[in-house]
């Protein structure tokens, strides 16, 4: 295991302290059937950073996240969270699944979904009381959704649904936020609102990791980037590793040269 020493280049403090990293994944391999989707991936997330996981479709971005969280069972690999094994540290993690992964016809209201983020406090049988409701409403406020608290979740737009998911993650009060494509299929206003909330979390010293599709916004939104195509391609600060060379390696020439030129890349 090597410890990367990275020059910070004026970005927020992102020292790679492996032993206490918010998320350290080692040797993660996942396969669906015969084909490995994620192969022997190591990932170290720096505390207080915002990391984008990028890679082409089917490159194992979401699967890496799910395997790290134990949602899918890996063939091998382990996850350390703040230097401890995952099971005892789940309370420090909040997870926002892909919006398309749930059935939005489910009979429940916006406020009920946010209250699910308080499951740890509420447990099996504790009654939902005013403080819980206040907390849930405060989380809805942070994503600008207080007016929708009584709506059935299917009656929301895609962007509103994504905000509700983010509010649920906020309710968890975690230190590490893992989001799976939070900007997929959302309107521009929602994208702005979400990124503002995420940057707010970073200012509070929280750590954010997001599977991200839009390469153009990587430098603007994130300070670190993790590039994957089944295997890890590169990992580090945006300034260091978000280069045309690494993008070509990650996307295997699927990005046209013109597209790469348009990106705000760090060139040689």
């Amino acid at each position: 295991m090597t410890v990367e020493l990275v020059a910070n280049q004026g970005l927020p403090p992102v020292a790679d302290k492996v032993e206490n990293a918010p998320l350290a994944v080692r040797g993660m391999t996942v396969s669906y059937g015969q084909k490995p989707v994620v192969f022997s991936v190591d990932m170290t997330v720096a505390e207080g950073s915002m990391t984008a996981i990028v890679g082409p479709n089917g490159a194992g971005k979401s699967t890496l996240l799910k395997a790290a969280l134990g949602i899918v069972k890996p063939l091998s690999g382990q996850t350390m969270v703040f230097g401890q094994p995952l099971p005892g540290q789940r309370h420090r993690i909040a997870y926002v699944p892909q919006r398309a992964s749930v059935d939005w016809d489910f009979p429940t209201r916006v406020i009920d979904v946010v209250l699910m983020g308080l499951y740890r406090e509420l447990g099996l049988l504790k009654r939902v009381r005013q403080p819980h409701l206040d907390k849930a409403m405060a989380c809805l406020e942070r994503v600008g959704m207080t007016d929708f608290s009584d709506r059935q979740i299917g009656q929301l737009s895609g962007g509103q649904q994504q905000r509700v998911f983010l509010a649920r993650a906020l309710a968890q009060g975690a230190d590490l936020y893992l989001l799976d494509e939070p900007f997929a299929g959302v309107d521009a206003a929602t994208e702005k609102a979400i990124i503002a909330v995420l940057k707010g979390l970073r200012e509070e010293g929280k750590t954010v990791v997001a599977v991200h599709h839009d390469l153009a916004t990587v430098p603007e939104y994130f300070d670190r980037v993790f590039m994957i195509n089944t295997s890890k391609i590169a990992e580090g600060t945006v300034a260091e590793v978000f280069t045309a060379e690494n993008l070509n390696k990650t996307y295997g020439g699927r990005l046209a040269t013109g597209q790469i030129d348009q990106l705000d890349l760090v060139t040689g």
Binding site: I71, Y95, F106, T108, L124
Partner: peptide, 17 residues
Amino acid sequence: RPLKLSTFDEGFARTLG
């Protein structure tokens, strides 16, 4: 609560342990 949560969003339920 677990029944409702895991029926709606199994992935999220699993991250809660």
